[in-house]
Amino acid sequence: MTETVSTQSTVKEITRALKHKPGALLPILHDIQHALGYIPADSIPVIASELQLSRAEVHGVISFYHYFRETPPGKQTIHLCRAESCQAMGSKKLEEHVKAKLSIDYHETTPDGKFSLEPVYCLGMCSCSPSMQIGNDVYGRVSNESFDSVIDEREALS
């Protein structure tokens, strides 16, 4: 089975399982992203047809929520907090450093596919600002240096 075919069948399976729930679109999108890591563009016609929606409607919802991705994520996704407390503790500077270090902007993935960068608005760790999350690990009081060492370590591992 080719990759596209298996992706399509996952999309169909998820959509058909959930389509009868009221307000089924969001749960379907969540499950697809959970299963595939993102919502491929060619899954939209399938979702639209199953739910009696237009492609535009589905696209509108996906693009409204930043959490939903339309491209495959890197192996690890860095969620960098941009909320008030972190900003007060210098997250803007950290942000610049992170982008320079990885050579990518928000919502982008490094060319080697190792890291994606996403903003997040509060991880509930304000006392340890600025903070970030990678996978299931959260990091507090992140500095340029501590960021670099975390990344270098993770890069070496991956």
Binding site: A56, E57, F64
Partner: peptide, 9 residues
């Protein structure tokens, strides 16, 4: 027809 939407926010 629902051909249009608002992309992004």
């Amino acid at each position: 027809t629902f051909a249009l939407t608002i992309d992004g926010r």
